[in-house]
Design a protein around this nucleic acid. Structure first.
Lengths: 171, 171
DNA sequence: TATTGTTATACTCTATAACTATA
DNA sequence: TATAGTTATAGAGTATAACAATA
């Protein structure tokens, strides 16, 4: 079955945008998006982007700690255990990252008035400023690359991307 | 200067799509794209996606080794040192990942006829099939989430995304 | 009994620095 | 001399499993 599939795939060896792929033309849009996402999810792309955006923001803000800041900014004060699934690490991981951020003055720990066991992680003023700064840098970075697009197309693309992410396979 | 900026930012505390942000409305498209990309680059999103896509494909294919396979499929046989910047790790990292893939029969090492020091990493037939399978799964996954879009809009979005990635801040 | 935050442990992956072989 | 592949080493980050405190 797999052998047959492979054979069929390799019978149609058309070139997609010069790349050396050799699969069919069906689902062209899906493959085009898949390739773009693959590029975006590459480690080199992510680290390079993070490095450029966190330039001069202190050692505490990096690829590991920023998701904690970002999620707190989006949802408000949360406990470590509550934050864990959003950040994508265990609650012990959230604790370690939060400790770094607390030492840098970007967040503070407050006893949860509703649960004596928990501590709420709260953004400080500096933490809020850091998130806003980073978000503005990314937005500016993005818009600079869209400046050559015809009027309205960037806004349309932004809308489509938002629609894709919220209703798509990643929500 | 930063204090002034922060102050200005927090004077306009409008709500964007229900999120608890408090920054201006300028560069709306940039911020919308930035938020979508932030969601996409999150660790939880990436690991979840990789886990779903590599289901039942053997232990050798995972988040670490797939970029090696994918890059080889895109560019043809390459040496480890040549591949390293594309994959986003050191050449020793490429060696380690390639060894796992070679043990699983997905790639093979061939002496580079043009350089006696180098070995070319070459996809085997199984390796090509694995890449095709994974790429098809992702494309199908994506298209399923776009099935409810009006005719033509998915294709338009695919085109825009490709244009954004190749001409954008990640190229 | 279950869950909180935290910490020690074992594990994985990485970059760095070696090493040998070849350009 | 510089660069290829490979490997040992040290460092960073993680999940797991404990622990005491609280629900």
């Amino acid at each position: 079955m797999r052998a047959l599939r492979t054979l069929l795939l390799h019978c149609s060896s058309n070139s997609v945008r010069g790349a050396r792929y050799s699969w069919g033309v069906e689902n062209q849009a899906g493959h085009e998006i898949a390739d773009a996402l693959g590029m975006l999810l590459r480690r080199s792309t992510r680290t390079q982007l993070h490095r450029r955006l966190t330039e001069g923001m202190g050692e505490a803000v990096d690829e590991l700690t920023y998701p904690v800041l970002s999620t707190l900014a989006r949802t408000g004060p949360r406990s470590a255990a509550d934050l864990a699934p959003d950040v994508g690490v265990d609650r012990s991981g959230v604790t370690r990252r939060a400790s770094r951020l607390e030492a840098a003055g970007l967040i503070r720990r407050e006893p949860d008035p509703a649960d004596g066991r928990a501590y709420l992680l709260v953004l400080t003023e500096e933490g809020r400023a850091a998130v806003a700064e980073l978000r503005d840098r990314l937005a500016a970075h993005i818009m600079a690359s869209l400046s050559s697009w015809p009027p309205g197309e960037a806004e349309r693309f932004a809308h489509d991307l938002h629609r894709f992410m919220t209703g798509g396979p990643f929500s």
